[in-house]
Nucleic acid binder design. Sequence first.
RNA 1: CGGGGAGUGGCGCAGCCUGGUAGCGCACCGCGUUUGGGACGCGGGGGUCGCAGGUUCAAAUCCUGUCUCCCCGACCA
Length: 421
Amino acid sequence: MRRSQLFVKTRRQTPADEEARNARLLIRAGFIHKEMAGVYSYLPPGKMVLDNIKQIIREEMNAIGGNEVLMSTLQNKELWEATNRWDDKEVDNWFKSRLVSGTEVGIGFTHEEPLTNALKHFVSSYKDLPVYPYQIQTKFRNELRAKSGLLRGREFLMKDLYSYSRSQQEHDEFYEKIAGAYFKVFSRLGFSESITFRTFASGGVFSQFSDEFQVLSHIGEDTIYVDKAKKIAVNKEVYSDEVQAKLGLNKSDLSEEQAVEVGNIFPLGSKYSDALGLYFTDENGHKQSIIMGCYGIGISRLMGLLAEHFADDKGLVWPVSIAPFKVYLIRLGSSPTVVEAADSAYEQLTRAGVGVIYDDRDASAGEMFADADLMGIPVRVVISEKTLISASAELKLRTSKEPQIVPAQALAQTLEKQLQN
RNA sequence: CGGGGAGUGGCGCAGCCUGGUAGCGCACCGCGUUUGGGACGCGGGGGUCGCAGGUUCAAAUCCUGUCUCCCCGACCA
């Protein structure tokens, strides 16, 4: 993409109405726009980051048998009454509205009910199970207080997968499988297993207990106890002697840490399937309950955490896997030779499939360098009179101080090699 | 919802205490000069000072109410 065709602009100054580093950087770099507290829009580069995160999640979900669906946002009250989750006393963060006729509708904060209900049309035999539908979409929760930029919003992007299994054992096996897939997702996003912990926690409105995936971070609003050797963690909220014994932990091996919950998986048993009347017939012709689980990943929250985690005093520093563009191409100078060389470098990279943003503005050098840094693009390439003397281009990684000079003709190949690492 | 802070051109701020012609920087427009770390000169456009009442000859400024944003807490996926 040519920079001149990108409508967003970066800002020199930090927005006054944000305290959180993730929101400050993402707004300054032109990735998001704040609509109101806890509600953000995603601008072109921000949407690209979101799409990259989604794609990684999608690949890992598909790899374990997930089927992607898109669920409705408007929710039928009757389904939620069937599971006793409509009443504000049961779920206090519903957004609700009314049809012109006066009928109440909900605005989806999760989707167990409608999905389970829809599956009644497709699941009746043991041969139809297990199934693993999942969705990637906006959820709405009426938080008392939104905060920390993208980390706690009233409207946020989430991946939710729901499992429907024939037995507890089949469920348990999948539950472990998806836990493994989650670690793959987080590690591909840049959160290694050394800072990401599966954490024993409460199940909230979903179930008694759950497993959270917590990434250690000083901005985290959760406090967890971690046994780093055993790679087990417990949320402080549920910590008790009983839990300690159940997990085989030793108080002296635990360290207290702040962490951000990026994923949460819940065993649901047959609570929702039974309530909504979703059953299957087994090999012997007997009606059986279906064991469910639900598995969430906070996608917009992850984007916020990534921005928070991968940044320095100059701006964002995206991991290659999710950067909106891999290369920020800078054209220094406006003489015909420079323009021609930069245009051709742009074409070369685009043809090679390397995502590139080409700064073709007539801006000052410093401004373009500052933008490349602020936007956190992994590789910066400069074409100037100076580099053209030796038919080369200057290449600098966002994470390194020193640039390198590479032959302009071999730009694409060199970059492909660099981006591998 | 309790406590604290803040709303003044698109952005960042000053002015408010002590009422009297709304100001600065950035961004934007025009002309010219510049071009390896957020260039410079000259000229220009843009704001019912969050909103509503009140006090006053006169309100960005004082008073009351209200909305919004941020932080802490409570709560929460």
